[in-house]
C-alpha cells in the first residue's frame, strides 16, 4: 500500500541474496567475512545501530559532520551579518547609547542562528544521505526492524554468480537464506 505513495515513480529492480541472522554477533562475524570476500556493495539490515558493523562491512564514515560544521558556521555568520546590517546600515538607531555594532549584544542571536541552521541542515543532510523519504524500495523482511539481522548482497557486475554467493553465505551460519527478486 505504501508503494503507491511514492511520488517519484519508477525505481530500479532489487535483485540479490539475503541472509538472515538471529543475533548481532553472528552478523558481525558474517559481515567481516563478506568484506574479506570482496563484496563491496553488500549492506546489512539491523533493528538498531550495531556498533562496529560499518567497519566490518567497510562502509565509509559519514560526511554529515562536515555539513553540520559548515552550516553551523554559515548560519552564525549570516545571523551576525544580518544583525549588523539591520542595526547599523539599513536603519541605524542609537539605543541606550550603545554603539551601532554592539558585538556583545549580538552574540546570543548569532549563536542561536548557528545552531538553528546547523541543526536543521543536519536533519536535511541525513534525509539526503539516506535518500529518505523513500516509499518505493521494498522492505526485505518485516522482522528486520524487529528482531532479525540481515546481510544483503545485491546482484552486480558480470562476474555475479548466485549459486556461489548463496554457498558462501551458507558458510556464515544464517538462520535463513533468500534470493530477492523485487
Amino acid at each position: 500500500m505504501l508503494d503507491r505513495l511514492n511520488p517519484f515513480g519508477k525505481r530500479e529492480p532489487l535483485r540479490g541474496v539475503l541472509a538472515l541472522y538471529e543475533d548481532p554477533d553472528t552478523l558481525l562475524l558474517a559481515a567481516s567475512q563478506v568484506r574479506a570476500h570482496g563484496f563491496a556493495n553488500a549492506d546489512a539490515y539491523t533493528p538498531y545501530a550495531v556498533h562496529g558493523l560499518s567497519e566490518a562491512l567497510g562502509i565509509r564514515k559519514s560526511w554529515i559532520p562536515y555539513v553540520t560544521l559548515v552550516m553551523g558556521l554559515g548560519g552564525a555568520g549570516l545571523g551576525l551579518l544580518f544583525q549588523i546590517w539591520t542595526s547599523a546600515y539599513d536603519w541605524p538607531i542609537i539605543i541606550g547609547g550603545k554603539p551601532m555594532v554592539s558585538l556583545p549584544a549580538f552574540i546570543p542571536v548569532t549563536f542561536e542562528c548557528g545552531v538553528l541552521v546547523g541543526g536543521t541542515m543536519t536533519l536535511a543532510a541525513l534525509l539526503v544521505a539516506c535518500g529518505l523519504p523513500d516509499f518505493s524500495t521494498p522492505i526485505l523482511d518485516r522482522d528486520l526492524t524487529h528482531d532479525r539481522f540481515a546481510i544483503f548482497i545485491p546482484e552486480s557486475g558480470r562476474e555475479w554468480n548466485e549459486a556461489r554467493t548463496l554457498e558462501f553465505l551458507q558458510g556464515t551460519k544464517p538462520v535463513e537464506l533468500r534470493v530477492v527478486r523485487a
Binding site: 539490515y45 545501530a49 562502509i59 543536519t122 541525513l126 529518505l132 523519504p133
Partner: peptide, 29 residues
C-alpha cells in the same frame, strides 16, 4: 507509521549516517 518513518529500512549504510547525525544534533543541543 510508514509515512512517519519516511521509509526507513534499517540499512547499515543509513544507520552509519544516522548515528553521526544524531551525535551532531546532540552536540548542538
Amino acid at each position: 507509521y510508514g509515512v512517519l518513518s519516511l521509509g526507513w529500512r534499517g540499512s547499515e549504510r543509513h544507520w552509519q549516517h544516522y548515528e553521526r547525525a544524531y551525535m551532531m544534533l546532540a552536540g548542538l543541543s
